[in-house]
């Protein structure tokens, strides 16, 4: 179609403005977790961003650690404009200087976030609540983290190590319940060594839902999102808040150092926290835990608003991160056999 023809059609007032506008849309790239996040953001966030800000976003599905590794390997030319990270990798990214300084004032919707949820590093876009998931048809509801080490639970337990955020904070909570602390894992490892021969599985985090679904394990530690998702697929699963309290953390978005689409990146994050997007993401089939104060979390989430997150156990990742590598290899060794 020639320009002249298009002008003619535009003059005729046909439905082409959108096409004309799209041709000049800003292009940006965002990292996104593979799987549920990828699906959700493509379906909910991308259309809204295009409609509201005329920005088209290309998604690069990468786990948090892969985002850090890829950005690091790129050495200054970011492969994407926006990170989405959990607390552990977030601290790594900060240490490595992978983020642009973030200005919360550039988020028009920042008012919907609880205080402190947007800072000079990035903005929270979703919360995760971590606790114990169990199969109510096979085992009674566990009361707390200590229960997992009792034989009737241990023989049905799926263990995963310090490789992920939810794994790390669950193991820390267990260590605390066993007499250790956020930095002392010794009591935990002693107990892990004891139950190692009888646990049903020691697996990669990504394999846990599949193992649960197949009945290989009936107890695991995970987030409410996984519980809701598995239940929606007919898996008998329930979430138990440990007596010491569920742990919570937020997933944050950050703008990559030297990004050439900074304005679009702010628009992308702003759209992500906006009430319509957060509402859509909290519903079936996405089941996100919203960070937007105006949105009510789903039924499995043991809070009625993000404001309640202060009642949950949180962790100091600046203290955890330096110790994590040691815990990871210690977990390998303790579990080997």
């Amino acid at each position: 179609m020639s320009l002249i023809q298009r002008r003619g059609l535009l003059a005729a007032g046909l439905a082409l403005p959108a096409l004309g506008a799209r041709a000049q849309a800003t292009q940006m790239t965002a990292a996104v977790y593979p799987g549920g996040w990828d699906e959700a953001l493509r379906a909910v966030l991308a259309p809204r961003l295009l409609q509201q800000h005329n920005v088209t976003v290309a998604f690069d599905p990468l786990f948090a650690v892969d985002q850090i590794a890829k950005a690091r390997a790129a050495r200054g030319t970011p492969p994407f404009d926006v990170f989405v990270l959990d607390p552990g990798p977030r601290v790594s990214g900060m240490d490595l200087g992978l983020f642009e300084t973030f200005d919360p004032a550039r988020l028009p919707s920042r008012g919907v976030l609880p205080a402190g949820y947007a800072d000079n590093v990035g903005a929270a876009v979703a919360a995760q609540v971590v606790g114990i998931a169990y199969n109510p048809q096979k085992v009674p509801k566990p009361a707390g983290w200590r229960d997992l080490f009792r034989p009737e639970y241990a023989s049905k337990l799926g263990l995963t190590g310090f490789g992920t955020t939810f794994g790390t904070i669950s193991l820390i909570e267990m260590a605390k319940a066993l007499g250790g602390s956020e930095t002392n894992m010794d009591p935990l490892f002693a107990e892990l060594r004891r139950i190692r021969p009888s646990v049903a599985a020691v697996a990669q985090p990504a394999a846990m839902p599949g193992l649960f679904q197949q009945g290989q394990i009936d107890v695991m530690y995970t987030n409410t999102y996984t519980v809701t998702l598995l239940r929606s697929r007919g898996v008998p699963i329930a979430f138990a808040v440990p007596e010491s309290g569920a742990a919570a953390f937020v997933t944050t978005m950050h703008i990559a150092k030297n990004s050439r689409n900074i304005a679009a990146a702010y628009q992308y994050i702003d759209a992500m926290i906006s009430t319509p997007v957060q509402t859509a993401l909290s519903l079936d089939p996405y089941f996100f835990v919203p960070v937007n104060k105006e949105v009510t979390p789903g039924a499995d989430v043991p809070m009625r608003s993000i404001s309640e997150i202060t009642n949950f156990v949180t962790h100091d990742w600046t203290r955890i991160n330096p110790l994590r590598a040691g815990w990871i290899s210690r977990f390998n060794r303790e579990m080997a056999g």
Partner: peptide, 20 residues
Amino acid sequence: GGRLNYLPALVWQQAMVVFD
């Protein structure tokens, strides 16, 4: 699973999780 240790997974872990 995690109780059997093979080099490929250890390489991945050191490179992608531990950053060593």
